[in-house]
Write a protein that binds this DNA or RNA. Sequence first.
DNA 1: CCGTCGATGCGAACACTGTACGCACAGCGG
DNA 2: CCGCTGTGCGTACAGTGTTCGCATCGACGG
Lengths: 240, 240
Amino acid sequence: MAARTNPIPSVWARRQPEPDQPALSRAAIVREAIAMLDTEGIDALSMRKLAARLNAGATSLYRHVATKDELMELAVDEVFGEMALPPTGSPDWRAAATGAAEAFRATALRHPWLSSVLGQAGLAYLGPNLLSFSERLGALFTTAGFPEPARAIDTLLAFVIGMSTTEAAWLTTVARSGETEAEFIARLMPAALQATADYTHLSGAYAAAAATPDPVEIRNSKFSYGLEVVLDGLALRLPR
Amino acid sequence: MAARTNPIPSVWARRQPEPDQPALSRAAIVREAIAMLDTEGIDALSMRKLAARLNAGATSLYRHVATKDELMELAVDEVFGEMALPPTGSPDWRAAATGAAEAFRATALRHPWLSSVLGQAGLAYLGPNLLSFSERLGALFTTAGFPEPARAIDTLLAFVIGMSTTEAAWLTTVARSGETEAEFIARLMPAALQATADYTHLSGAYAAAAATPDPVEIRNSKFSYGLEVVLDGLALRLPR
DNA sequence: CCGTCGATGCGAACACTGTACGCACAGCGG
DNA sequence: CCGCTGTGCGTACAGTGTTCGCATCGACGG
């Protein structure tokens, strides 16, 4: 654990427990990996650097995690556990679904690396947190009276995933530039306007976006507009 | 081009044009990269291997492409060019939107690596093919009479991206196993049923999925169900 | 026809990466 | 006290993206 091997073989080489610094464990590794992914980005995560942050040797991690890909799977399931769902049995299914969608989006934006990983491994994982998330969604749509709750889940999730990953990827690009979102947009605008000069519909849309001041507000309303569209479409499937 | 430097410095070292084998060029590099990504997967693409397939030295590629990331951007825009949209001015906007959505899905499934890359760079690219795709979508929803065509585009794209990338990621996982989709499902089923044993809604859904024989049909209907939901929701926004 | 020049190809090298292997050592059951 | 099992880790290997500087090319000006 904490104590690395002393080069001088002697009494001092004996390791001490240091019980406050928790031992190297799968949970501790995953936790530190997530912290590293959040602050330094997905490209900066390497087994060596992660081990260094845990005061451990690089290859020690492999005692608790089979491979880096497996570590990423664990990290994904871990953050899925963050998504709080409104308590089951809520009478208002729209509000509950909206809450779930916003919880997903918030998590995806808090951990932008999630978007990159989802594209490589999908939702095929069978992690416990992901299962419980799906289960609660299933309960939500079933008690709401949907004849095909699984399809409703798939539809809602597809929209939420698509919107959130696109947004997270955009924010990652912005972050890499080192500028604020507004600065980045301002810098990009001339090129965008020039590139879309020949496209009547596009240039109008871009110009409109440039006029609105707050990019965060734009993204929020984009998400909730689309969410309302999907929920409206789903509502039509509810037997009256 | 084709001729690599002869170790013996002599007349034979002179390179010959071989005009049928096109010279190393940005277009040729991108084309070969896509072929490699399609057949060998995203992890197998390295600058060295790509160069070898082009009978070139590894670092020669950097004369035409600034970095590997830039090469991926070019590849993404290139496959966006494959997406055929129904001719503009179609009277039936639902059919046109359905066609566009299916074109996107088909492309994403034909190039599964696209899903991985989209999560890292989003749709922030300003590539010509992507712009023209967006422009045609804008024309579609504008002539259909939507008051906020940009929002309609965003909603539809979010759903299509979410569904397609999830599906592509699943198919990638299946492909890595070396089995057919049905075999993979059959092998995964016991674990899935056991993991979902405690979840009433989930296990029912899994059991139902296991009963249906053709996985391709399931995925197709999942996509078209969700697409109908989104289009229904959008239709409500059309002024009557 | 020769000399020069910009563009292109590329071998070698650097700093890293994920991970297999085998040794060292701790704590524990007998 | 012995031996076993689980844990940490130093070393090593086969790769990765990318930089640098040199060699060679076709085209062009004198």
